[in-house]
Design a protein around this nucleic acid. Structure first.
Length: 225
DNA sequence: GGGTTGCGTCCACACGCACT
DNA sequence: AGTGCGTGTGGACGCAACCC
């Protein structure tokens, strides 16, 4: 096993941050969780919650992102996906001559989480994504990062790369279509949607049905993978 | 250019349930 | 029994991309 005799780096290392774009879905559509910064730079501006990678605390990048979310939001986020890494000499020149941000995306039911403003954040707010991606006052390049997270998430849903773990175990096709429509921000054709699901074998019927009102009970389905 | 394929859109219809 | 409504299925058509 390699022993590190001297922890000092041979070359200058970048200042590494972890940012998390938490997308929350509710009846009105997709929202993004923003925190108000307590410190410079961008003091008082809204930003994606994030923090510094700690090699003494973090096993890996995702572990670091989970720690940061716990410290900043008191949240455990079960389903995160690495979105992008951005860096450069001018990214955070107040604190470092070279800064790197590794950005993660999480997708949650907005009503299922209750984030609390923790370290370095004076306030938290859910913002509609259409509003956030046009807000030029967001800190750093976070407006672009939110736009990227929304675009990627919508592309995944449009490709029927359904968010495993985010969906309930059992659902009706109508519920699934409604979830996809709220993420996409537009209506889908029922016939096309169901045909694609069927052709690709993405869902299969399970025992049981859902009765809601004066209508035919809906068959329950689950994801096939 | 013509044929094929995949996909989206529009539409029709059967079904099952609640209500009157 | 008739009606209204949401679920579930499938046909017809148009369009674009692709191949020959």
């Amino acid at each position: 096993m390699t022993q590190y005799q001297d922890a000092r780096p041979k070359h200058p290392m970048p200042f590494t941050r972890l940012e998390v774009c938490v997308l929350g879905l509710n009846d009105q559509g997709l929202h993004v969780l923003l925190g108000k910064r307590e410190a410079q730079p961008y003091q008082g501006h809204w930003a994606l919650p994030g923090g510094v990678l700690r090699i003494d605390l973090d096993e890996d990048l995702e572990g670091g992102a989970r720690r940061v979310m716990h410290e900043r939001l008191a949240l455990e986020l079960p389903f995160m996906r690495q979105l992008v890494a951005v860096g450069g000499k001018h990214r955070d020149h107040d604190r470092s001559p070279w800064a790197l941000s590794v950005v993660y995306r999480a997708l949650v039911w907005q009503t299922a989480v209750q984030p609390l403003a923790g370290k370095r954040l004076s306030d938290l707010a859910w913002r509609g994504v259409e509003d956030a991606v046009t807000d030029t006052k967001l800190a750093f390049d976070h407006r672009e990062l939110v736009a990227l997270a929304v675009e990627r998430t919508r592309q995944e849903v449009a490709d029927l790369e359904l968010p495993v773990g985010f969906l309930p175990r059992a659902f009706t096709l109508g519920e699934l279509q409604s979830i996809c429509e709220r993420i996409l921000g537009r209506a889908l054709d029922k016939s096309s949607f169901r045909r694609k699901l069927s052709d690709r074998g993405l869902v299969h019927p399970i025992e049981g049905e859902k009765r809601g009102g004066a209508n035919r009970p809906a068959q329950l389905f689950e994801l096939s993978r």
